[in-house]
Design a protein around this nucleic acid. Sequence first.
DNA 1: GTGAAAGCGCTAACAC
DNA 2: GTGTTAGCGCTTTCAC
Lengths: 347, 347
Amino acid sequence: MSRSITIRDVAAEAGVSLQTVSRVINNGPNVRPEVKDRVNAAVARLGYTPSLAARRMGGSRSFLLLALNDRDRTIDGWKSGEGTDWVDQMLMGGMLECAKHGYRMIFELIDTHSSHVEREVLGAISALHPDGIILTPPHSDNDQITELLAKQGLPFARIGSQIEGPGFAIAMDDRAAAHAATEHLLDLGHRRVGFITGSDEYALSAARTDGYREALEARGLFDPDLVAPGDFTYDTAIRAMQSLLARANPPTAVVASNDQTALAALKCANDAGLAVPDAFSIVSFDDTPIVRFSHPPLTAIRQPIAPMTAAAASALMRAKAGEADIPEQQILPFDLIARASTAPPRG
Amino acid sequence: MSRSITIRDVAAEAGVSLQTVSRVINNGPNVRPEVKDRVNAAVARLGYTPSLAARRMGGSRSFLLLALNDRDRTIDGWKSGEGTDWVDQMLMGGMLECAKHGYRMIFELIDTHSSHVEREVLGAISALHPDGIILTPPHSDNDQITELLAKQGLPFARIGSQIEGPGFAIAMDDRAAAHAATEHLLDLGHRRVGFITGSDEYALSAARTDGYREALEARGLFDPDLVAPGDFTYDTAIRAMQSLLARANPPTAVVASNDQTALAALKCANDAGLAVPDAFSIVSFDDTPIVRFSHPPLTAIRQPIAPMTAAAASALMRAKAGEADIPEQQILPFDLIARASTAPPRG
DNA sequence: GTGAAAGCGCTAACAC
DNA sequence: GTGTTAGCGCTTTCAC
C-alpha cells in the first residue's frame, strides 16, 4: 500500500524543480551535467519510474503502441492449437523493441469483417491513446482502417503489406520469396511445378502468385493449369491439391501458400501414393513449428515476423519522437530453409 | 488529429454534469433511469470511450492487469520455435476475460534469476500501476516476488502454484494428473512405469512426482529406480531416458514431465529399437502443438492454461471491484488426451 | 439524485 | 539553464 514515489519526491531529493527532473527523464536539453547527475542519483536512490498514465495526461506521448490483429483468425489459431507462432513472433519482435525505449506494446484483437471495425478501432484509440498502431494482415490492407488512422493523424505501420498507401509499409518481399521457392524446385530439376494460392483477401497472395509465375515464365514453363485456388485453410487446400493431382499432366512439385496448405498437400500426396520428397516435392510458405516437425520436415520460406514487428515498432517510436528520414517502406530479407520435403523429381 | 471526445462533451450533449456521466460509466448508484438513458444515448452518439490514463489518474483503478512471465524461458521458447503455446493460451484466456470488463492485460517479461527482480517488478508497477498481477511459473513460487507484491498491497494471482501463500492460487491438480497419467498406463497393463521428473525450481514438479508414485504404490508397483531426474529440457531428458532404458529391468512405459521430455523419450525409444507404442508407451505432460504432430502423436495431459489465466484475471478484477467471497485457491480440471503413443505392453 | 471543487503525476509553454 | 504556471480527463469528496 506504500504510496508510490513521484517526480515530486525525486525533485525534493535532488533539490531541484519538478521540471528539471522531467527534463532529465526525457533527455531534454538545458540541464547542466552536474545537475543531471544529481537527479539521476536521486532517481536511482528512490527507485523512481515515471507513471505512464501521468506522462500521457500531461504530455503528448503515451509510450504505448497498439498491435491490432484479426480477432477470428487469431482465436481460431489459438483454439486449434495448430502451432502457428505468428503472435509469439510478433510479441518477441515488438515487445523487446518497445522495451528498449520505455514503451509497451498492447496486443488487441478486432473484427475485420464487422460493420463496426471503425467503432472498435476508435474505441481502442480513445481508451489507450497509443502513440502508434501496428497493423497485421489482413488489417494492413484494410482501407477502412488505414483511412481512419490517417484521418486521426495517428502514425501506423502496415506489416506484410505490399501495396502503396499511408503509414509505414513493412514487408518481406513475397514476390521474390515465391520466386525463390519456385527456383529452388526448378533447380532440383522439376519442370511441372504447381501452386496453391492464398486468400484473395490478402494482397500478398497476388504477390506470391506473381513470383511463382515469373520464375516459371523465365524458363518457359508456366502453365496456368497448375495454379489452384486456396484460401490458406487446410480443407480448401485439400481440394486444390486433389485437383492438381487429377490433371492429365500433374505437377511433380508444389509451392504452398502457407503451412496449412503445405500440410494438406503433404496429406494428399501421401494419400495418392506419392512419397515426399522422392515422388513429390513441397515447399511451404510458412516456417511454423508444425512444418518443422512434420514428416518429412518441410522446406519452407521463413517470414521475418519478429524483425518486421520490431521495425514497425521502431519506426513508430521514432516518428513520435519527431525523427525524420524514417523510410516509408521497408523490405526485410526472408530465408528459404531447405529441409526434407524437396528433392529432384523421379526419373 | 481530431481532438478526442471527453467526458465533458458527453456531459454537454446529455445536458448533465461531468459527475453524472462518470456515474453512468461506472454503473454508480444515484442516477435516475431516465437520466442514465440520456447519458448512454449521448455516449453512443458521440462514440465516447473513457481514457484509461485519465481514469487511472483520477481514480483508484487503472483497468490494467499485468502478466509477468519468465524472460529467458519465454524468449528461448520463441526463438527455438519449438511450438510451445503457453503464451498464446495465456493471452487467449487473459485477454478475452479482461476485455469483457473493459480491462487490458499487459504481458511483460522479467528475469527470475536476476538480482534485480525486485527493481524490475517495482518498475513495471510504478509505470503501469496495474490493478493486479498475474504470476506464472516459476514466478508463482518466487518468494521475493510474492512478498514484494503482498507488501505493496497489490492483488496478485499465482498460476500453476501448488503451495500455500498470499494471493490467489490457481492451478491444475498436478498430483492428480500425474496419478491419472500413471493409471492410464497401468490400466493398459504396464507394470514397470518410469518417470522423468521436472525441474526442482518448480514446485509442481514434486506434485507430479508424488502423483506418479502414489498411483504405483497403490498397486505395490513403485520402484524408486524408475524415477529419473530431468529439468524440462530435451538434452537432460535424453540422458534420463537412456539411464532408464539401461536399467537391469527397464520400464515398458514412461510418464514425461513436459513435452520436451516426452519428445526426448520418444527419440531414445526409437534409437533403442523400441517402437512406440507397440514396444514402449509414453505419456506427455504438456499438450503442445508439437506433441500433437509428433509420430506417433502423443497421449498427453492437457493443462487448462487459458482457463487458469481467465480465472486469475477474473479473480483480480473482482478483487479490485471490492467483491468478497473470491476463492483463495482454485483447482481447475485437466484432461488426459489419449493418442497413439500408449498401448498395452508387448508380450 | 445531482453538481461543484479539488487533485491525481506529469509535461508544455513561458518566464526568469 | 532552471523554475513557475496551467492543465490534460477523469474520480473522489463533499455540498446541495
